[in-house]
Nucleic acid binder design. Structure first.
Length: 491
RNA sequence: GGUCUCUUGGCCGAGUGGCUAGGCAGCGGUCUGCAAAACCGCGUACGGCGGUUCGAAUCCGCCAGAGACCUCCA
């Protein structure tokens, strides 16, 4: 499959044709979660976006090494909290748990949520805590190159010095003069030469439990460092794509560029990709704003803003129905629309298996196939691809209704295409009925009831027929009378 | 305050100089004992005011509103 993929590069603010560094292979790094509380809807977005990218690149014939980290070291809280306390150790004290117990707990939840969303595991999932030595090594090289300084056992990155040789602010589109006049003064910054300098290594306060020995102090690495270190370690000093949420552009990714460049003398990332935010009531959904809904709450419907539960695939569809660089507005109405839309799509996929081939085709799916792939090639435009899939749904339904015909070879081709698109690339999976265990027993029982209902209908005993139907619906089994007989499925 | 982005029909969301996505909801019809589902058909929207152009939702300017980043954040 020869695809020419175009990617919007945040660095150049343009769409660029994607050319991997090494022919046929792609190195992809994505910023993963900080595991100190449950994952919420906002976290689903980058993971689904880059899952799509991972799947699409793989489908397009690339061998992809996908690295997504787990941040389990923690970094400084904001100024409203007692200063200098690590996020994870703070949480640990509240819950009377070991820091690594907190990490493990929320990492498990994250993994379970991702599996539910059918997000493929990355090729490598490195943890910051497992790369302390490598982080110290990078600090050494930055110090050796003269772009960092030590104060009281902490190491800070010298942004001004760096900016004399390189361009600090190139990713986020700001310049140091603006940053100088616009950076707020925060607590605990008196050690730094400039307020915009950032920590590479921080000496731990006595109450700070997460700490590692180093030649400078017992302490912990600065937040930005882990991504620079782990991306380079597993993907090389230069690699293809680095992704993450738009809110990470500044300062996180800006600092990553500075660190890697200060250490290596050259930049390591070739394409920067950033997904936009999910909004709720017109505002970004964020842990810090307290307006988030966790994935578990969405799956169970157990949240005061939710009118019902939404399945993982509904959430996946909801996210893929918008372009990854646009914001999406969360609402019950929008989620319910996604639920119905997805059902329509999945029903059509199932319908494909029921279609009977003719000798000839009166429909032509070629342009739909081409348009779907073209949309994905154009900066991962999943909403357009899905729109074209729905055009195909219309045709599939017309064939089923007997208004159009399809030949055997075209049908096989079409099935393969929908399987590729819906399952392999967009990453949907069949939920409900087919997945549930005990299928055979249930099948038998329902078939029996439907047989009784059929007899009742023949005898025009509408009371019994409707009782069977209505009560089955009541317990979650939907009955559909069609020309070819009765269909049923679990709701 | 600085930097940047957005404003599309009832809702969600694509598009971005002429060919007016898609989903959901709604309406009309077909089918059906009824219902559901399915199918067919229907809606000409792009914040306001100017400008450029043969032609603008799409380019430019101004105004209004919303948001993001500047601090942890996906």
């Amino acid at each position: 499959m020869e695809n020419s993929i175009v990617i919007y590069n945040t660095l150049t603010r343009k769409k660029e044709i994607f050319k991997p560094l090494v022919e046929g292979k792609v190195g992809l790094y994505v910023c993963g979660p900080t595991v100190y509380s449950n994952s919420h809807l906002g976290h689903a977005r980058p993971n689904i976006t880059f899952d799509l990218l991972f799947r699409f690149l793989t489908f397009s014939g690339y061998k992809v090494r996908y690295v997504r980290n787990i941040t389990d070291v923690g970094h400084l809280e904001n100024e409203t909290e007692e200063s200098g306390e690590d996020k994870i150790s703070k949480k640990a004290r509240i819950e009377k748990l070991e820091p690594m117990e907190v990490v493990q707990k929320y990492m498990n939840t994250f993994h379970r949520n991702m599996e539910d969303l059918n997000v493929l595991p990355p090729s490598i999932e490195p943890r910051a805590s497992g790369h302390i030595i490598e982080q110290q090594q990078m600090i050494d090289s930055i110090l050796a190159n003269g772009f960092a300084y030590e104060v009281n056992g902490s190491i800070y990155f010298d942004v001004e010095k760096y900016n004399q040789h390189y361009n600090y602010g190139k990713l986020s589109g700001r310049n140091l003069d603006d940053i100088k006049t616009n950076t707020r003064e925060l607590d605990g910054q008196n050690e730094k030469k400039n307020s915009f300098d950032f920590a590479l290594w921080k000496k731990a306060a006595p109450e700070h439990i997460m700490r590692w020995p180093s030649k400078w102090s017992n302490g912990f690495p600065g937040w930005h460092l882990e991504c620079s270190v782990m991306s380079i370690k597993y993907l090389g000093t230069q690699f293809d794509i680095h992704g993450g949420g738009m809110d990470l552009v500044f300062p996180h990714h800006e600092c990553e560029i500075a660190q890697s460049t200060a250490s290596l003398g050259e930049e390591s990332v070739r394409y920067w990709m950033h997904n936009n935010m999910i909004k709720i009531n017109g505002q970004k959904m964020a842990r810090s704003l307290g307006n988030f809904i966790t994935l578990d709450e969405l799956f169970s419907g157990n949240h005061k803003l939710l009118q019902q539960a939404y399945s993982p695939m509904t959430i996946r569809f909801f996210i893929l129905q918008a372009h990854y660089r646009s914001t999406i507005d969360f609402s019950n109405e929008a989620m319910q629309a996604s639920e119905k839309g997805l059902e329509r799509l999945m029903t059509a996929v199932k319908t494909l298996d029921e279609l009977k081939p003719f000798n000839e085709s009166t429909v032509d799916f070629t342009s739909i196939k081409e348009k779907c792939l073209a949309a994905l090639n154009d900066d991962l435009n999943s909403p357009i691809a899905i729109a074209h899939l729905f055009d195909g749904v219309k045709m599939i339904n017309s064939i089923k209704a007997g208004k159009e015909k399809i030949a055997a070879n075209d049908l096989a081709d079409l099935k393969a295409f929908y399987n590729n698109m819906v399952f392999d690339i967009l990453g949907f999976k069949v939920e409900k009925a087919e997945e549930n265990g005990g299928g055979k027993i249930l099948d038998g029982a329902v078939e029996l009831l439907l047989e009784l209902r059929k007899n009742a209908k023949i005898n025009k005993d509408w009371g019994t027929a409707d009782k069977i139907r209505d009560e089955l619906i009541e317990i979650g089994i939907e009955i559909k009378d069609t020309k070819d007989g009765v269909n049923w499925n679990l709701k």
